[in-house]
Design a protein around this nucleic acid. Structure first.
Length: 473
RNA sequence: GGCCCCAUCGUCUAAAGGAUUAGGACAUCACUCUUUCAAGGUGAAGGUAGGGGUUCGAGUCCCCUUGGGGCCA
């Protein structure tokens, strides 16, 4: 089995392309086949090395390693031309001299007259003399495929039988007047030359498939098997695109998603193992995946479920496994500096342990954990309203005294100190716990208070209480 | 507009004509645990688009309608 992913270098790897890549990759790994990467960059204007790099980086981040390539279509132009010439010579294609303006005019006329427009084969019926004349004028010429009469059927791996009458296919261009191949032509030549056995791609290519099969047959080649995956849709049910927000794989990396979680989520978008399992490792996915179980219905991308799944993966990972990822986000928020990475390692490992149940993304560690690293936070005004009360200052002074005497500053000792004071004052522990949390973190929620204070350390806790003492009621 | 694809809770899906009171997950709501927030536990609500057929029996097969999507322009 040889499969491939063939992205265009448009500046990012689309989440839909990523899922297509994933399904191909799963198939290749499951059947010990080969996963080929091909860059479809015939649109030279819009392609660049940087854009290619983004694709490679995205695939690497997802952990979808390829076995061959990347191949570049832009370096294969001569090959496409050779095959186009061959079809021309064999009378299976013909030159078309119609200009875009002429075509537009005839198309509009057809629409005005209420006819369905399809290329009218004007250039197919040109006499030799007319052709010579046009050539002499130096008119640009495209090459059109001569669609034979009949009908094409194929057995789609996902959809089953799909058929198309050739009357509904116009004589499409295979080589443009600038000498570049069209998508349909290049894809067939490449898939054949690269020995692709299973073409697994998006549903948006279903209508191209009969055209491509026609080309295979015209060149005397056996077409591969085709499987068309349902599309990933945005909330509004249209094809997922930039206007739906995060659509680039690397955006998810930036947003703090784990590649394992994204892979798992994407695998489930259009496929399920059949039982009720949802959290599946790569190994399990490879073992369980089958193209027969792929759904043929378009699916809406649900970021909330992805978020949940990412949270599940964060909980599953050890502190050590999360360390580097969390570090990057702390660094980005300027909460830490690279030179203190080793020195702060244990502190951060403990921080991750306290926070990971509460974080859905790696980014959350930085946004929800600000106070673990900096003193300069504001107190949540809503929290002040709720938890500060007259006489609090006096109580906090007493608590401060106790904390100063608490040695060592451990979870148990802190709890004992605080609860002891509460008892002595004849109040509920809550009446101290909430204000202390607010003073030491700026927030009304977070890890268990005693664990939190112990981890912040005596020095920080005392400093923060002292700092806020003057403003307490 | 032409052609093609698709139709199960809000979303992702399970149910290979009989095992179904249509199952699970996310989200929602309630309760519970708790110093808070999460997490966890328990529970609730929520679906076979509509209409015809085929069949002893239809979510499942066929047809039509409607709706959604894609491609080409």
């Amino acid at each position: 089995m040889r499969v491939r992913i063939a992205p265009s270098p448009t500046g990012y790897l689309h989440i839909g392309t990523a899922r297509t890549a994933l399904y191909n990759w799963l198939l290749a790994r499951k059947h010990k086949g080969t996963f080929v990467l091909r860059i479809e960059d015939t649109d030279v204007e819009r392609s660049s090395q940087e854009m290619v790099d983004v694709i490679l980086e995205s695939l690497k981040w997802l952990g979808l390693d390829w076995d061959e390539g990347p191949y570049f279509q832009s370096r294969r132009v001569e090959i496409y031309r050779r095959y186009a010439e061959r079809l021309l010579k064999e009378g299976k294609a013909y030159c078309c001299y119609c200009t875009p303006e002429e075509l537009k005019e005839r198309r509009e006329q057809a629409i005005r007259e209420g006819r369905a427009w399809k290329y009218d084969r004007k250039c197919l019926y040109l006499s030799e003399e007319e052709k010579r004349k046009l050539e002499k004028e130096g008119r640009p010429r495209a090459i059109r495929f001569l669609v034979p009469p009949g009908k094409t059927e194929f057995n789609d791996l996902v959809h089953g039988k799909i058929e198309k009458n050739h009357e509904d296919i116009e004589d499409f261009v295979i080589l443009k007047s600038d000498g570049m191949p069209t998508y349909n032509f290049a894809v067939v030549v490449d898939d054949h030359e690269m020995g692709i056995t299973h073409v697994i791609r998006g549903d948006d290519h279903i209508s191209n498939t009969p055209k491509q099969i026609l080309i295979y047959r015209a060149l005397g080649w056996e077409p591969p098997l085709f499987g068309h995956l349902p599309l990933i849709l945005g909330e509004d049910r249209s094809k997922l695109s930039k206007r739906h927000g995060a659509v680039a794989v690397l955006q998810y990396k930036e947003d703090g998603f784990l590649p394992d979680a994204l892979v798992n989520y994407l695998a489930l978008l259009g496929w399920s193992p059949g039982d009720n399992r949802e959290i599946l490792s790569r190994e399990e996915l490879i073992e369980l995946f089958s193209i027969e179980r792929v759904s043929d219905r378009n699916a809406i991308f649900d970021r909330r479920k992805l978020l949940w799944m990412n949270g599940e993966y964060i909980k599953m990972k050890s502190e050590d496994e999360l360390f580097n990822g969390v570090w990057e986000f702390l660094k980005k928020e300027e909460l830490v500096k690279d030179e203190e990475k080793e020195e702060k390692r244990d502190y951060i490992l403990g921080f991750i342990k306290l926070m990971k149940e509460r974080c859905k993304t790696l980014k959350d560690f930085a946004t929800l954990g600000y106070y673990f690293f900096r003193d300069d936070f504001e107190l949540d005004p809503e929290g002040i309203r709720k938890h500060f009360y007259p006489g609090l200052k006096e109580r906090m002074e007493k608590l401060l005294e106790r904390f100063e005497k608490t040695e060592p500053f451990t979870v148990e000792n802190i709890e004992q100190a605080l609860r002891g004071l509460a008892e002595e004052l004849g109040i509920k522990a809550k009446e101290l716990i909430h204000p202390v949390r607010l003073i030491c973190s700026g927030m009304t929620f977070g890890p268990g208070l005693f664990e939190l204070l112990a981890h912040l350390g005596k020095e920080r806790v005392i400093r923060r209480i002292k700092k806020r003492l003057p403003e307490l009621p």
